[in-house]
């Protein structure tokens, strides 16, 4: 279920990117896409067993229990931080654009 939801989130984000012309809305769509992508990555490593546990366990016990895949979680942590970096730069650019054109709408900015 969550797998489908995450693919839908990616698709919704893409749709928002294709149709919106407002700078803030575009960055919001990017964020929706990234959240969908993050959930997708985590679902890829999920093990739907009652006995599967989160990957926090001491070395001695590891042979006896099953844990979910820790690698996608590490990758998502990296992806989240990278996403914050791009969002911060995108918002700074939005602020710059507002200072220059006094609007957030890309169509109203006009060509130079």
């Amino acid at each position: 279920m969550l797998l489908y939801a995450s693919v839908l989130l990616i698709v919704i984000g893409l749709y928002g990117l294709l149709t919106n012309r407002n700078v803030i809305k575009i960055i919001l769509s990017l964020n929706v896409l990234e959240i969908g992508l993050n959930i997708f990555i985590i679902t890829v490593g999920f093990l739907d067993l009652e006995e599967a546990i989160a990957p926090i366990i001491t070395l001695q016990q590891r042979a006896s229990v099953i844990v979910v895949d820790p690698l996608p979680q590490a990758l998502v942590l990296t992806a989240i931080v990278i996403g914050v970096g791009t969002t911060a730069i995108g918002l700074s650019l939005a602020k710059k654009m507002y200072d220059k054109y006094h609007t957030f709408n890309l169509d109203e900015m006009g060509e130079e």
Partner: peptide, 25 residues
């Protein structure tokens, strides 16, 4: 020209998101 840079940023981010999706599959 913040507008072009913004366009570059958005397309670049979409591109790397697609790349990430492909690599995770």
């Amino acid at each position: 020209d913040p507008k072009s840079t913004f366009n570059y940023l958005v397309l670049g981010t979409i591109g790397s998101s697609f790349y990430l999706l492909g690599l995770i599959i």
